[in-house]
Nucleic acid binder design. Structure first.
Lengths: 252, 252
DNA sequence: TCTATATACGAACAGTGTTCGTGTCAAGTT
DNA sequence: AACTTGACACGAACACTGTTCGTATATAGA
């Protein structure tokens, strides 16, 4: 059986399957670096994809635009990537690979888990809209498992029960992705959308206070609270809510 | 100024703007029911859109398919709807309108808020994938404000501080939408996707236990916990986590 | 040198949201 | 009763999207 000379697999389907398998113990990588003058690499594809997302947002990451950024046509990408979904998977994997996971410290598990979530948030927001892709991701990509493993280690070290820890990781990752998706949508709208679809906080506050007090008493009364939250106050609040809930459930 | 004869606005843009304004006190509806034999109504559009989503999923809700279900062309829809985003807004509004909000009972606020979230979850899952649209929604649609008002009333009656209540509502709605999106994606994949992208729990468990214990010790050790959760156990867990956190923060 | 083969890529297909222009038909006015 | 009016319906088209097919190319091994 013939084996390609830059990485160990012939077509991108096999490459994708390999990414989800446990890593082979005998890892002999890149036997000979390149074959032609400028062959497009998967790494190159991921890099430019992340560049497109960082500058134009995830919605702008189309196969054609990505191919254009690589000075080629869209068909060329399919030699390196199975799918658009596969490309998303690769991009999220790269993003997860850049997260640094701390050595678990039982005394500081709250700060540590908060720190990991904050890292994920900042990474998601650095690439606006990418959390949409993260929400649709299968949890078997090795880099994602690595993050999950790191979070699990922190919570277990903190004395959280295994079942609670496992479910809490799921809840945290889900919330962080949803929060970042909302923030990205808001920012994108306020950036390049024409009026009537953009609502900044002042506009929202004005609308809530203008609601009829008979049918919406609490909304108009507490409009300030509903629209409050500088920066990531809402994010911090929710994380503390969940982490405190975890700590309270355990005698740790 | 001329006024159309079936509802009070000329074009769908004005209709959309009116939906986000506080309701006019003098509401005189449908002066004369219909003008032509079978004119398409906005209500009709929303109904068939929900039908399409319920049977084929949100991804199948395209303007052309919706137009086809109404026996017309896609251009005809734009007389009733500004946008695809506007259609999504209308659909979510209808969905929210069907939620029943309980009279706040200070003694039972936990069960009440849990009940509302469960209703939203079931409504989202009844229309698979629609939570994707809900995540991108502006919070000024009157039906959404109505739900938010109802949840706020429950939490305030339960003695939760206004700021905590406001942020908790946001967190809960965000989590419910994200959870339902994930569940919908999973179900859709296991329904009509070919292999290699579908992961049921057994497959997941097998993969997690097969991971090398040196690099993924906790994941392989607690694979059962990571993949556990019959029905909506994960959902219930997270809701309890947040609600308990709210209750603990307040001396109620 | 010659063949084998993985890669590159132009062209095309089916699908999407959206707009333009035109035709149609009921209501209000003369 | 004839006429204007203006909202609606709708065919056709545009600019996109992801994806595939077939072919050309240039290198690795014989």
């Amino acid at each position: 059986m013939f084996v390609s000379s830059y990485d160990g697999w012939v077509n991108p389907r096999e490459r994708r399957a390999a990414r989800h398998q446990p890593p082979k113990p005998e890892a002999e990588a890149n036997p000979r670096p390149r074959r032609r003058k400028a062959p497009i690499t998967v790494e190159q594809v991921i890099d430019t994809a992340l560049g497109v997302i960082a500058t134009e947002g995830y919605e702008a990451l189309t196969m054609r635009r990505l191919a254009g950024a690589l000075d080629t046509g869209p068909a060329s990408l399919y030699a390196h990537v199975v799918n658009k979904a596969d490309l998303d998977e690769l991009v999220i994997g790269r993003l997860c690979a850049e997260l640094v996971l701390p050595e678990p410290d039982p005394a500081a598990w709250r700060e540590q888990i908060r720190g990991v979530c904050t890292q994920i948030r900042d990474q998601y927001l650095k690439y606006p809209g990418i959390s949409r892709a993260a929400l649709a991701m299968a949890p078997t990509d090795l880099e994602i498992v690595r993050v999950s493993e790191g979070m699990l280690a922190i919570l277990l070290a903190g004395g959280v029960a295994p079942q609670a820890a496992a479910w809490a990781i799921d809840a945290l990752l889900l919330y962080v992705a949803a929060y970042c998706l909302e923030v990205s949508i808001m920012r994108q709208r306020s950036a390049h959308d024409d009026a009537a679809w953009v609502f900044d906080r002042d506009e929202l506050l004005r609308r809530f206070t203008a609601l009829p007090a008979e049918t919406f008493p609490h909304t108009s009364r507490y409009a300030a609270e509903l629209t409050a939250g500088e920066g990531h106050d809402r994010f911090d609040f929710t994380l503390n809510l969940m982490i405190d809930g975890l700590a309270h459930g355990q005698p740790g």
